[in-house]
Nucleic acid binder design. Structure first.
Lengths: 200, 200
DNA sequence: TCTCGACTGGACTGGCTGGTCCAGTCTACG
DNA sequence: CGTAGACTGGACCAGCCAGTCCAGTCGAGA
């Protein structure tokens, strides 16, 4: 990642990343080849290695970063303002819709799984993503607290963690079985239980 | 899968499956090769293709079946008798322990992800596994109902689905980040909320 | 206009790996 | 025994694919 990238160079680099992301949304990492990326982005091998000297893994890592950003962005503006029960409901709908549409393909998941521990920094992408995600949920819960909808002694982080786990699991099951029931159940009951905690 | 397998043949076939399972517990599917399996099981290529004429995918599918059985078996006898709050707690402990020990490697997950839609029957393995898993949880919740610990009008399947999602998500996060916090949070809050439903 | 270095094209290579083939051994059974 | 067919060994093949190399082109700044 040198600085000496021309505007043109930067554009090409981005085109490669985005093209690769598209490819990975269609086929699994283990099946996707550099040739696929080349075809999609109208670039040659030398360009790929020009912008990603470390080779495939470096490109894949860049794509992972790109996709991680995308994941959170796709939930906006809802994820950013979870300050009422209605807002939570809307967020739930968006999440369900997004992942139902995405279907079984999960670039992030397979990407990081594939890079694994071999590539330093791969794990960090997920760790950061999860932290940010959970932080957003926690912020939402706190917003409910300050609005007086939830008791102040609620263990916010614990709740947020469980909710995120349910969401992730729902998505995982959706991806491996094709059924969204679990995702819906996890989110609905997660929110419902939050409400119940309010009553308690 | 012909019938004409000698006792010796069966033994070899099983040795291959179990050896392959071991290999996949150490390295990802996309990295594991038939040579790895050969080395581990002291077999030759011709044997692999003798017992799995369809090649690698057929072997992998057999391993997936094997692993799916293993997953549920590892939770016994606890998963089978969730008839008291203490039993649920013990089950929780076993699950957490099992997956913490297993660490980031998840043969089932990557296996099915890798086989994907290309191999018919691959998805069925997960679907069946999830159904059985959820059924066991549902049975446990019903046991609590009949014991009078939970109200009779509780939506059992819905609860079981959400719990399973939380569990799966916790495992997924554990595997991709190395932290078991989410798994613990999901199970603890899942059970706690069940209890709260009892009070309601 | 000249020049340097960023940028691009595409042929080539080397290793890996799934899969094939055939020759040889063992074993259940008549 | 003997033999058919299950079982085993390992050499060999072919395709794929990441990565290399070099010969160019383009463009910004002196």
């Amino acid at each position: 990642m040198r600085k000496e990238l021309t505007a043109k160079g930067k554009a090409t680099r981005n085109r490669i990343i985005e093209g690769a992301a598209e490819v990975l949304r269609e086929k699994d990492v283990s099946v996707a080849t550099l040739d696929d990326v080349m075809a999609r982005t109208h670039t040659s091998k030398s360009q790929l290695f020009h912008y990603f000297p470390e080779g495939k893994d470096e490109l894949l890592l860049a794509v992972a970063h790109h996709e991680a950003d995308q994941v959170l962005e796709d939930q906006q503006p809802y994820l950013g303002c979870l300050d009422s029960w209605e807002a939570w409901q809307r967020w739930r709908d968006v999440v369900v819709e997004r992942y139902e549409e995405q279907g079984e393909r999960c670039p992030m998941g397979s990407l990081v799984l594939h890079l694994g521990r071999s590539t330093p920094g791969a794990r960090d992408v997920v760790v950061t993503l999860m932290r940010q995600w959970q932080a957003s949920l926690a912020t939402g819960i706190r917003a409910l607290q300050t609005a007086g909808h939830l008791p102040a002694d609620l263990d916010v982080e614990h709740r947020a963690a469980a909710l995120l786990a349910g969401l992730q699991g729902g998505v995982a099951i959706l991806q491996s079985t094709g059924q969204a029931d679990h995702l819906r159940a996890a989110l609905d009951l997660g929110i419902e239980d939050l409400r119940r905690a309010a009553a308690a």
